[in-house]
Simulated assay, not measured.
Amino acid sequence: MQIDVPIQLPSQLEDEIRKTIASVIIEGAKQATNLYYDLPPYPNKTQLKKALGVGDDKVKQWIAEGLQVTRFSNSDQRFDREDVRRFFNDRKI
């Protein structure tokens, strides 16, 4: 058995809820579209992991799957931001 109880919110509260939901959606969309742009042109592995929200194992997997690595020196490996974008664009279904 289902019982429906109507709740009447003050219009000011409804407007505030709408604004809050809209701002959360807009912020999420901005973050999703700016993932690659938040990266410096040649991020190191730590910067890449932080920007994409992944761990070391995931980056190693992507490298094994073809993500290009640029060697700046013997101890400094970095990623070209455009290579990262291309890698993910090629994986789209």
Rank of each mutant, 00 (worst) to 15 (best):
E27T: 11
Y42H: 08
Q47P: 03
Y37P: 02
F79R: 05
R81M: 09
L13M: 08
G66K: 03
N74E: 12
L52R: 15
I25M: 06
E16I: 13
V54K: 13
I26H: 10
D76K: 13
E16K: 10
P40C: 02
L39F: 11
E27A: 08
R86P: 00
Q31Y: 07
K50T: 15
K45H: 01
Q77M: 03
L48C: 11
Q31G: 12
A22I: 00
R78H: 12
M1Q: 12
R71K: 15
Q12P: 01
L9W: 02
V59Q: 10
P10G: 04
D15R: 03
W62F: 08
G53V: 03
P41K: 12
Q47K: 11
K19P: 02
P41N: 11
R85L: 15
N44Q: 09
R18V: 04
P10A: 04
D57E: 06
Q8P: 08
K49V: 07
R86A: 12
R85M: 12
N89D: 09
A64K: 15
P6K: 08
G55R: 13
V69C: 10
P6T: 11
I93S: 11
P40E: 02
F87G: 00
Q61D: 13
T70A: 06
A22K: 01
L48S: 06
G28D: 12
T46A: 15
I3W: 00
K50F: 15
S73W: 04
K30W: 14
I7S: 14
A29E: 15
R91M: 13
L35Y: 05
S73T: 11
K60Y: 09
I3V: 03
G53S: 06
E16C: 10
R78G: 04
G53P: 08
D90P: 00
D90H: 11
T20L: 06
I93P: 14
S11E: 08
E16H: 08
I93F: 09
R81N: 06
T33F: 12
V84T: 04
R91S: 12
I25Q: 14
L52P: 14
A29S: 11
K58N: 13
N89F: 06
R91W: 05
I63L: 01
Q47E: 13
R78N: 02
L9S: 02
T33D: 14
F87H: 00
P6V: 08
D80P: 00
G55A: 15
L48G: 07
Q77A: 01
N89V: 03
K60F: 07
F72D: 03
V54S: 14
E14C: 00
L48Y: 07
N89K: 09
Q77N: 06
R18H: 05
A32V: 00
E27F: 05
K49P: 07
D90M: 10
V69H: 03
D38V: 08
Q47D: 07
K60V: 10
K45I: 01
T46V: 13
I63G: 03
P6S: 08
A32K: 01
D57N: 10
F72Y: 04
A64H: 05
T33L: 15
P10L: 05
K30A: 13
Q12C: 00
V84F: 03
P43V: 11
T46F: 06
I63M: 02
K60A: 14
I17R: 09
L39E: 12
K58C: 14
D90K: 10
K19C: 05
I25A: 12
G53H: 06
K45D: 02
K45F: 02
P10F: 04
V5I: 14
V59I: 14
D56Y: 09
Q47F: 04
